Simulated scan of single mutants.
Amino acid sequence: MPHRKARTADIEQRLLIDAIYHRYHYDFRGYAQASLKRRLNTALIQFGCDTLSQLQDRVLHDPAVFPALLEYLTVQVSEMFRDPGYYQSLRREVVPLLRTYPSLKIWVAGCSAGEEVYSLAILLQEEGLLDRSLIYATDINTQALRSAEAGVFDQARVPLFTENHARSGARSSLSDYYTARYGRVVFDKALRERMVFSDHSLATDSVFAEMHFVSCRNVLIYFDRELQNRALGLFREALCHRGFLGLGSKESLRFSAHSDAFEDFVLEDRIYRKRAGL
């Protein structure tokens, strides 16, 4: 009986994900199913539904439900200068080569609420490159994009952000880049002027510009192998000759269909470089 119940839940999950795709054109079919299952089980409680079929009915017939459900389906957990060693390696190994370009285009794919975008903008400012850079920040969650564009974060998170920033090889104080008021911090407009925020799905959309550096950290771990390969194919296509790709600490190119298109650049920090001619 428990086995039959689990199989029914799996069928309901597939039907719900298909319904979301056909109704709202958000494609979660290539996401890791175990991770989706955990998030949907949490959503069931919050929406007061006993089954995914009940949730599907609400998603299809109540337009207000899907935007709220999207908050559960997309992962919005990050921090500024997460994994400081990654940013140290960007400063030491990648930035000297980025300096050779007259202008820079950078893509942060799956930018969530913007922590990584602001981290990169501050790093580029500290390295004297922000004024010739344009950072494209994309995500499928439009509410997260609005939060990212606002550049407002809870002040309680700032001590961790500050510690990470210092450990990243900072050349200034993080407090130089924000104003604190009413329990929140607002990052400088000058940083946001070098950012372009846009909704983009790695599951369904195509490349939109040529990039010198793509950073997609802690996103691929939520995809199945086929969708990982699709996303990495987009990054390969987007990167200019000898461009750079940064992934999360638990992600790798090793078993992907595009591993031959990249060489290890700083392997311990998951930074790769596109091979010549590819």
Rank of each mutant, 00 (worst) to 15 (best):
V77M: 12
E210D: 02
F244D: 13
R132G: 01
A113E: 15
H258G: 09
T51C: 10
R146C: 10
R157L: 14
F153D: 13
H212P: 04
A203I: 05
M211K: 09
V65S: 03
D154A: 15
K5P: 01
H258Q: 13
V266N: 07
G151R: 08
F161T: 10
L69Q: 01
E226V: 08
V75D: 07
V108W: 01
A68K: 14
L40S: 07
S168V: 12
L36N: 04
D199P: 13
Q228P: 03
M195V: 07
L191I: 00
Y101A: 15
V77L: 13
Y222A: 01
N164C: 11
F208E: 04
P159L: 14
V196G: 13
K37T: 10
Q88D: 10
A109W: 01
F197D: 01
R38C: 10
L253V: 03
L174W: 09
A180N: 14
F81S: 03
I45N: 03
Y101F: 13
R270W: 05
S35H: 09
A121H: 01
K5M: 11
R99Y: 00
S119M: 08
G243P: 06
R184W: 06
V95C: 12
A203T: 02
V207F: 05
G85W: 13
A238I: 10
G114Y: 08
R146T: 14
D224S: 04
L40D: 06
A109K: 03
L253D: 06
I17D: 05
R58C: 03
L278H: 15
F81P: 05
F28Y: 08
G128V: 01
E163N: 14
Y86W: 07
Y178T: 15
A156K: 14
L40R: 08
L247V: 09
S147W: 12
C111G: 00
H25A: 15
F223S: 10
L123H: 03
F28P: 06
R39S: 07
A276Y: 09
L97Y: 08
N218H: 06
L40T: 06
S201Q: 09
E210Y: 02
E115F: 04
G114P: 14
V158G: 05
P159D: 13
R230T: 03
D205N: 06
I45E: 05
F66R: 07
Y101G: 13
L104S: 07
L15W: 09
R181L: 06
V59T: 06
L253R: 05
V77Q: 12
T100L: 14
P96F: 00
H25V: 11
L134C: 07
P84G: 04
G248E: 09
L104T: 02
S78C: 11
K189G: 05
Y101E: 09
D224Y: 02
R242C: 11
Y182I: 04
I140L: 11
V65T: 08
E126N: 11
G243Q: 02
S119E: 01
L97S: 05
S53M: 13
